[in-house]
Amino acid sequence: MTKLYFTREQQEQLKCNPNVQAVSEKAITYTDAFKRHFIAEYEKGKVPREIFEKAGLDIELIGLERVKSAGKRWRKAYHKSGVEGLQDTRKINSGRSSERELSLEEKIARLEAKTRLLEAENELLKKLDLLERQMKKK
């Protein structure tokens, strides 16, 4: 991450842009609509700097390195997961597991799934062992 920090004035200036969702002293959060627009324009052959400038974002203020890394991150997410990959999921996905108690049926289902996975792994290992022995005989 960059070591350039935004002053209060710079943060306020960036917040005025409709493509910016939030700004802190270290980071900018762009709207999902802007990310989709960025991908569409990039696929038409435009460079990240040009897309940001036409969106009214000051490259000198943001920093070219931030622009390039944001574009790279969004392209990677888009190619991996499509439009869903561009959505900001920090509010809905805290990364914490559920604290609730599992029902008996859920516990059984999880254990059965784990058992099937382990059985499949064992079968795979057996097949690999058999193939290795066949290769050694030849």
Rank of each mutant, 00 (worst) to 15 (best):
residue 104 L to W: 13
residue 94 S to I: 09
residue 28 I to F: 00
residue 46 K to D: 06
residue 106 E to P: 02
residue 96 R to S: 00
residue 98 S to T: 03
residue 109 A to E: 15
residue 17 N to V: 01
residue 37 H to K: 14
residue 29 T to P: 06
residue 17 N to F: 09
residue 125 L to A: 04
residue 69 S to D: 14
residue 49 R to K: 13
residue 23 V to A: 05
residue 101 E to R: 13
residue 30 Y to H: 11
residue 66 R to A: 01
residue 96 R to A: 00
residue 76 K to C: 06
residue 135 M to C: 04
residue 100 R to E: 13
residue 75 R to C: 15
residue 70 A to L: 14
residue 42 Y to D: 05
residue 45 G to W: 06
residue 98 S to I: 03
residue 58 D to C: 02
residue 97 S to V: 10
residue 33 A to C: 04
residue 118 L to N: 11
residue 7 T to W: 08
residue 91 K to R: 08
residue 100 R to D: 12
residue 22 A to G: 01
residue 109 A to F: 14
residue 104 L to M: 10
residue 1 M to C: 07
residue 61 L to H: 00
residue 66 R to L: 00
residue 126 K to Y: 07
residue 138 K to W: 14
residue 99 E to G: 09
residue 8 R to D: 11
residue 48 P to F: 03
residue 126 K to Q: 15
residue 138 K to H: 08
residue 80 K to A: 12
residue 18 P to D: 00
residue 56 G to P: 01
residue 114 K to I: 06
residue 79 H to S: 12
residue 41 E to C: 11
residue 67 V to I: 06
residue 15 K to P: 01
residue 79 H to I: 10
residue 24 S to E: 04
residue 24 S to A: 00
residue 95 G to I: 00
residue 60 E to Q: 15
residue 84 E to C: 01
residue 125 L to N: 05
residue 93 N to S: 04
residue 80 K to Y: 06
